[in-house]
Design a protein around this nucleic acid. Structure first.
Lengths: 123, 123
DNA sequence: GCCTATAATGATAAATTTATCCTTATGGGC
DNA sequence: GCCCATAAGGATAAATTTATCATTATAGGC
């Protein structure tokens, strides 16, 4: 397993981003919030993400106490993920981030500019 | 300059994280919000960040329309960064993220667990 | 027997981000 | 002349994250 070599920042925003900032984490939480709980279901609902990547992200979310896992003794194996109370408390933050981002996308139309995009004041 | 090879996700949360998720970006925005505007000042106020890294992050923030830049014809060169209206509109989101993260830190005491931390339900 | 599906993880490659070091340019202090 | 400070960026290394491919284990369909 990978272990960090550099010190981490530990103020509020950095903590939230560590918990939520993985590439697929917001998608996953959104699905779980909608009741899509099984890894294979998540994989079918999140185009572009492999089961492997989703497993990794779910494991991190679990380690961060954002989701927890229920395992059923069935075959084929059945696993479901649920939001913890911390995950629930994160929801309004996710909504706020989503609203800002969507407003931004709506205004700027195309995706975020590449680093060398033309500068502009107060666009 | 680095150009992306993989497609990007473009829903709200991902957009917000792209704008705000760089390692030093929240620190920088916090400083600018407090009136610390010059790169050299930022560098003195953000331990661990080099001028080089701050320049990179500022450039990205500028490209994302979160901050803009004023250059004064002085020597030594004087540059100041200000929040754009988009940057201002992002502020409540930053506050919400900061509050959640601080509550989390306060509850979990030490920094976020490493990926292999012991699982727990509803901690 | 080989295929399906399920969930998880090891090993490793590829992509991306962040860090380090160096250079440019300007003018003042000593 | 060499040092300071300022801001910016090139070149490259290091760190980190994400992706790809393979394997394990279990039971049912055909």
């Amino acid at each position: 397993m990978y272990v960090k070599k550099l010190p981490e920042l530990d103020y509020g925003v950095a903590t939230t981003i560590k918990a939520l900032g993985g590439k697929w984490k917001a998608c996953i939480l959104d699905c779980i919030h909608l009741g899509i709980r099984r890894p294979s279901e998540l994989c079918r609902n999140i185009p572009g993400a492999s089961l492997r990547v989703l497993s990794q992200q779910l494991k991190e979310l679990e380690a961060c106490h954002i989701v927890y896992k229920k395992v059923y003794a069935e075959v084929p194996l059945r696993v479901e993920y649920y939001l913890t109370s911390w995950g629930e408390s994160l929801w309004p933050v996710i909504v706020a981030m989503n609203e800002w981002g969507n407003a931004y996308l709506h205004h700027h139309c195309d995706s975020l500019p590449q680093p060398n995009a033309a500068p502009c004041e107060e666009s």
